[in-house]
Write a protein that binds this DNA or RNA. Structure first.
Lengths: 222, 222
DNA sequence: ATATGTGAATTCATTCACAGCT
DNA sequence: AGCTGTGAATGAATTCACATAT
């Protein structure tokens, strides 16, 4: 294991991908996997997987590979995924509602347990069994519940205001769906979900001429 | 400008963020911005912005900074954002429907113009003015329309199959919402939207003890 | 006075390659 | 024979720092 030093964030970001692939392997009944097998499944080199894992311990067996379930458990442990995390969701418009009704978070250890919005007509109503509070109640309610994780699904213009309230509420991890870079103190983590940015960074590589048929029809033929 | 060489993908991925911030500045009526002002808005260093831009040209004025609208236009041009891109969407379950009804893509130059699903009860129906085709028709329909961009919003188990069909249809950019790493040839780009992975990579930094209140109540008190 | 664009320096990340273990 | 874990080497990305322009 490399030191006790702090581990590069880029390594931490890959661990969920390793975990995901390992859990698929486990569900297929595979018991052992080598770094090269795992690597080819997720498009990274064997050396990178070994290096990444070496930050945390020696999880493999020479000549053999890694025990799938054991390695999965280790990674889940490293990432603190062995517990259910309560999550505050701010913004219950179209996107926020889609997030609430999406089952995928709860399965994976993230349960939305507090809802906030600014629309007076929504305050006090219930959604998915949870009362909706006003933004202004974020600090009190979130602190009371001891939450550390939040999801922001508000328009760009409200996002920084909401993030400031979450920071005041001692939230330390924010998943941000708003199309804006929010400012947080150094002890707060954020990750952005930015599908438009992802698309825009791919069109760089595309041939604008190829997009012809669509342009000729000006979007109305289909 | 640094050579004519190929530009690091990590630079390309930052351009949409610069563009986004510039368009907010433009809408605020700001006409000029320095690399350090722009950098502090989006949390990167001034040097990085200058270095990134230098791959493409000399867009600034010494002593002055960058003209906001001019720089925005340049970046939009680099990223091929001056045209509307037709997009194929595969999977019209909960997530796919949310994507269709989300207006944010069209505004930003990505218009969903072809829909595909595998559910026989959906084939032939209409959604948002577009006919729903079966997966098997992806190659023919997508080629006919000359599309280069696709969004995958199907379950993990179908994602690779769908991606193979998109590749056969000459799609070169895939935005993947399925929780799986898909395999594509080197001339096809993919970006993954992985909110669960993003959350899981943040809990690494959190204090599992803090999450106490929520655990004590076992998620049922709220 | 202020801010760019970029060589040079530095830091960070990945890959090589192999000793050592099963 | 096969695969890990890791020093050493390489490669990539970021930052420094300054000549140059306004």
């Amino acid at each position: 294991m490399v030191k006790d030093m702090d581990i590069p964030d880029i390594v931490i970001r890959r661990l969920p991908i390793y975990a995901r692939s390992l859990s698929y392997l486990a569900s297929e009944g595979v018991t052992t996997v080598s770094s090269s097998e795992l690597g080819s499944r997720i498009g990274v080199t064997a050396a990178q997987i070994r290096r990444d894992l070496s930050y945390f311990g020696e999880f493999g067996k020479q000549g053999k590979g890694y025990n799938v379930q054991f390695l999965l458990n280790q990674i889940r442990d490293i990432l603190h995924l062995e517990q259910q995390w309560g999550v505050a969701l701010v913004g219950i418009g179209h996107l926020g509602k889609a997030i609430v009704h999406y089952g995928g978070f709860k399965d994976k250890g993230f349960e939305i347990v507090a809802l906030f919005d600014s629309d007076p007509s929504k305050i006090g109503s219930e959604l998915d069994g949870h009362k909706v509070y006003h933004y202004s109640e974020i600090p009190q309610v979130v602190k009371e519940m001891g939450l550390e994780v939040a999801i922001v699904a508000v328009p760009a213009r409200s996002a920084q205001e909401v993030v400031d309230l979450l920071v005041e509420a001692d939230i330390k991890a924010i998943l941000n769906y708003a199309p804006i870079t929010v400012q947080v103190p150094p002890d707060v983590r954020t990750r952005n979900i930015d599908p438009v940015g992802a698309l825009q960074s791919m069109t760089y590589y595309l041939d604008p001429e190829k997009n012809m048929t669509y342009r000729i029809n000006n979007g109305r033929a289909f």
